[in-house]
């Protein structure tokens, strides 16, 4: 068992090292110093207090969106359209966040977060319902729901939820009572994210519901044989995945943006896919990857100012890491899905 864990960790670590090596060559080719660029990356991403605060804030969001994808993956569902659920959760949180006056923070934040999660759950759960009842593949339906949700939040932001008397389209500011506080300057969201990861890990490890979802994710026909309702699990898996994605949108609004503009949220749902794949669909194992990517992101602008390297190098590095780290895992995922489609029915085993 131990052997397996170390070997699983080896691939992501090796991917990072190889990506950094390739990045170094590219930076050098542009006539800059890779050593200096990476030095800036480490200092601004992880060493300086302000850098670390920014990193952890970003990491918190990445962890939760990674958890959303992970939850689906464990039940055998690829929630590729988490972005739409993030948007719906974000707007729902923002609405409750600026609309409900005069209630204390410890009530306001949970209510708004739950409302955001519920909206995400509605969108994800709908995709699950379509799959369970009509056999619509969740990759197709969630991508389509992405566009639908993008249009809906756009419409609402331009009309009902718009802050009047402003040239740019945006919602009113979220009230102070719905903004997540920092603890000694460090983001609360990161702590919430880690706690959520621990809870989800426990759900899959110790609860019968988690075991059912996990079993459905590994072998649907054996699940049905063993008396697990596959349809119920599909709906539940997408519902919770969507709820976590909606929660991500809410938390990002609360901690970072402070009001809603759709463009703020671009990429969050997709980052979740990266994180989940780096963590091999394990709720705890995705945390280091999220912190690493959060660090790269928070150092992105500094790398241009202080080392003169184009900030695009960060995107390139992330893409390389993702490529090396997930290619084998993805291939395995696709292969196991394709198993049911191969050639003639042989003799079982």
């Amino acid at each position: 068992m131990k052997f397996k864990i170390t070997r699983d960790a080896l691939v992501p670590i090796a991917s990072v090292l190889v990506a950094l090596a390739i990045g170094a060559i590219l930076i050098a080719a542009q006539g800059h110093s890779p050593m200096q660029a990476y030095h800036v990356l480490i200092v601004k991403g992880f060493q300086s207090t302000s850098g670390l605060q920014a990193t952890l804030s970003k990491a918190g969001i990445l962890i939760i969106s990674g958890l959303a994808i992970t939850f689906g993956l464990r039940a055998g569902l690829f929630n590729i359209g988490a972005q739409g659920q993030v948007l719906s959760g974000a707007l729902a949180f923002t609405y409750i966040g600026y609309r409900l006056h005069g209630i204390p923070m410890w009530i306001h934040i949970p209510i708004a977060l739950i409302f955001g999660a519920a909206c995400g759950a509605l969108v994800g759960g709908f995709a699950g319902f379509l799959k369970a009842t009509r056999g619509v593949h969740e990759v197709i339906s969630t991508i389509m729901l992405n566009s639908i949700m993008a249009a809906i939040v756009d419409y609402l932001t331009q009309n009902q939820f718009r802050l009047q008397g402003q040239p740019n389209t945006r919602t009113p500011d979220i009230l102070h009572s719905a903004r997540l506080p920092h603890i000694f300057g460090y983001p609360t969201g990161f702590i919430i994210a880690v706690l959520l990861a621990i809870v989800i890990n426990w759900v899959f490890k110790r609860t019968t519901i988690g075991f059912e979802l996990d079993t459905v994710g590994r072998n649907r026909s054996a699940s049905w044989y063993a008396g697990i309702s596959v349809k119920k699990s599909i709906v539940l898996g997408m519902l919770v995945s969507g709820a976590i994605a909606g929660f991500t949108g809410g938390m990002f609004s609360s901690e970072t943006t402070g009001y809603f503009v759709p463009a703020f949220y671009s990429g969050i749902g997709f980052d979740g896919i990266t994180i989940a794949l780096l963590g091999r669909a394990n709720p705890i194992a995705l945390i280091p990857g999220a912190i690493f990517i959060g660090g790269m992101r928070s150092a992105q602008s500094a790398i241009q100012f202080e080392a003169g390297v184009s900030p695009d190098i960060i995107n390139l590095l992330l893409a390389l890491v993702l490529f090396f780290a997930t290619a084998p895992f993805l291939a395995k995922l696709i292969k196991s899905n394709a198993k049911t489609l191969t050639t003639t029915s042989g003799w079982g085993s």
Binding site: T215, R218, N219, S221, A222, W224, G348, S349
Partner: peptide, 12 residues
Amino acid sequence: EDREKDGLVSSY
């Protein structure tokens, strides 16, 4: 009849 498909979850 098909232990691999129905009877077992081989990664468990």
